[in-house]
């Protein structure tokens, strides 16, 4: 496949909740191996955009393509894909939630192996071998048998990242992955994310951690009121934001 074509293409996507428009004509391209950070005040539609890509919310207009394939719909006529096709598409996008959402009844290891076994039909041995590697990578090899409520927030989020990675997604979406964490544990999660970025994982990260954005983001997008007001290379964005709103926002949080 053509390596220059964008991995993910978002075209004029809109979403309403009742009469309130949360996404307004959002367009964005993401290249393979790119790390994009989305900044913006709360309620700006960042999370909704991620959830639209993961097909947790249905968009009202516009379209999203992953490797040229339209997500959720058969064609521009907005005929929905059958459920099993949507399930198959969801395998290609991984998501890490603000509240971790580890399966409460399963151990860390089982959390990671569940989808590979049930969805990808891997054998238990295969799935566990991969899972243990991933747990090692996030530094939690010895916590394989622990249940989520026996882990700290940071540990839970690291397991959640491993769980998403186990499906080998084409793009990994992070929805404020450190917002629910204690300040001391934020770094351990960010370190894992930095490591993933260096390994060439394509990521979209909604976060308030500007240090992470400066460190690894290729580009930064700024959102407000459901619109993308500015997309720029990370250094340019932080050094001299173009849009007055993004400048004001940076002024507030830095």
């Amino acid at each position: 496949m053509d390596d220059d074509a964008p991995l993910l293409r978002i075209q004029k996507v809109s979403k309403w909740y009742g009469s309130h428009q949360v996404l307004c004509d959002v367009s964005l391209d993401l290249a393979r191996r790119e790390v994009l950070v989305i900044l913006g005040p709360s309620g700006s539609g960042k999370s909704t955009l991620l959830r639209a890509i993961a097909q947790l919310v249905e968009i009202d207009s516009g379209s999203i393509f992953l490797e040229g394939e339209m997500l959720g719909f058969r064609d521009e006529g907005r005929r929905k894909l059958p459920a099993h096709r949507i399930d198959a598409q969801r395998r290609e996008t991984g998501m890490v939630f603000q509240s971790f959402n580890l399966f409460a009844h399963l151990t860390a290891l089982e959390n990671i192996t569940l989808a590979p076994r049930r969805v990808l039909k891997q054998t238990r041995g295969e799935a566990e071998a991969t899972a243990i590697q991933l747990l090692e990578r996030v530094g939690l090899r010895e916590k394989a048998g622990s249940y989520p409520n026996q882990l700290s927030g940071g540990q839970q989020q690291r397991v959640a990242i491993a769980r998403a990675m186990a499906m080998n997604p084409k793009v990994l979406l992070f929805d404020e992955p450190t917002s629910a964490l204690d300040p001391e544990t934020i770094r351990e999660v960010l370190d894992i994310m930095v490591d993933l970025a260096h390994r060439g994982v394509t990521m979209i990260v909604v976060t308030h951690e500007t240090s992470f954005a400066r460190e690894v983001a290729h580009r930064v997008a700024f959102m407000e009121h459901g619109r993308i007001l500015e997309v720029a290379p990370a250094r340019a964005f932080f050094d001299s934001p173009n849009h007055p709103r993004s400048a004001a926002f940076l002024g507030q949080i830095l």
Partner: peptide, 21 residues
């Protein structure tokens, strides 16, 4: 919790799989 179902959906599980597992 709704997040449990969402986390499973994002991993590509079908509604029946989400319910069962």
């Amino acid at each position: 919790d709704r997040g449990q179902r969402e986390a499973a959906q994002v991993l590509g599980m079908s509604s029946a799989q989400v319910l069962l597992w």
